[in-house]
């Protein structure tokens, strides 16, 4: 038997280049799973949130219950949320995505609704006076004006989703969370720190990308401030 190598892996150091190079594929797979889970969750909740927000604004009676239900969903701690979905989805990636969708929904619905409600009545009347029908009014006037608030909500929802994916480790689908969980059980410092840092990096990059998108889509908000 040969003597164990005296490198940072053997010494279990926090920062370890050998870990990065030897576990590159594992890390890359975890990052990809993390991105997949986050992206599908945010996309799905966006698809659900827009009609919900429109309905909540269109019918006054629908507003309060929609906000109440999404607020209750948001109050439920993440571990409990994933656990409550266990009988429905079993130990699967769908469980994690479903849980994340329910969280993002609150943030998105609230922000889209706030954006739609902030459209000045004068603007709406001007559009109607120019002969805009209800559909064109919505697509060409109201939704674009609600964009800054909606995108702010989307940024918060995405960043929160990136960090919540890690809890998915409890069912084995946590992206980088799996590595953190595994690293905890084996006291593998380099793995825990690397996965944690990558997780924060993903959140920061996603936030910056969405900020860029916001600047691109809503140039008028910058012009107004300048």
């Amino acid at each position: 038997m040969t003597a164990p190598p005296d490198d940072c892996l053997a010494r279990n150091e926090w920062i370890c280049g050998a870990y990065l190079s030897s576990r590159r594929t594992i890390l890359w797979d975890a990052v990809l799973e993390h991105l997949r889970l986050t992206f599908s969750a945010v996309l799905l909740s966006l698809l659900i949130a827009v009609p919900l927000a429109l309905a909540a604004r269109r019918w006054r009676w629908a507003g309060a219950p929609v906000l109440a239900v999404t607020t209750i969903l948001y109050t439920i701690p993440s571990l409990a949320m994933f656990s409550l979905l266990l009988p429905l989805y079993g130990l699967s990636a769908s469980l994690v995505v479903a849980g994340l969708v329910l969280y993002s929904l609150t943030l998105l619905v609230r922000n889209i609704l706030a954006g739609l409600r902030a459209v000045p009545e004068d603007t709406r009347q001007a559009a109607r006076g120019m002969g805009y029908g209800p559909v064109r009014l919505l697509l060409a006037v109201e939704l674009p004006l609600a964009l800054p608030a909606s995108l702010a909500g989307l940024r918060i929802a995405t960043v929160s989703a990136v960090s919540l994916v890690t809890i998915g480790a409890i069912v084995g689908y946590g992206g980088l969370g799996n590595l953190i969980y595994e690293g905890m059980n084996t006291f593998f410092k380099a793995q825990v720190l690397t996965a944690s840092v990558l997780c924060v990096l993903i959140a920061v990059v996603a936030d910056l990308l969405l900020l860029g998108l916001q600047r691109l889509l809503t140039p008028w908000t910058r012009a107004a401030r300048a």
């Binding site: 929160s160 990136v162 960090s163 890690t166 480790a169 969370g177 690293g183 944690s196 924060v200 936030d207």
Partner: peptide
């Protein structure tokens, strides 16, 4: 904003180690 980007689970495990 920073509080939102840092996963609670990661901080718990980091502190544990």
């Amino acid at each position: 904003n920073a509080g939102r980007a840092v996963p609670t689970f990661a901080v718990l495990v980091l502190l544990l180690l």
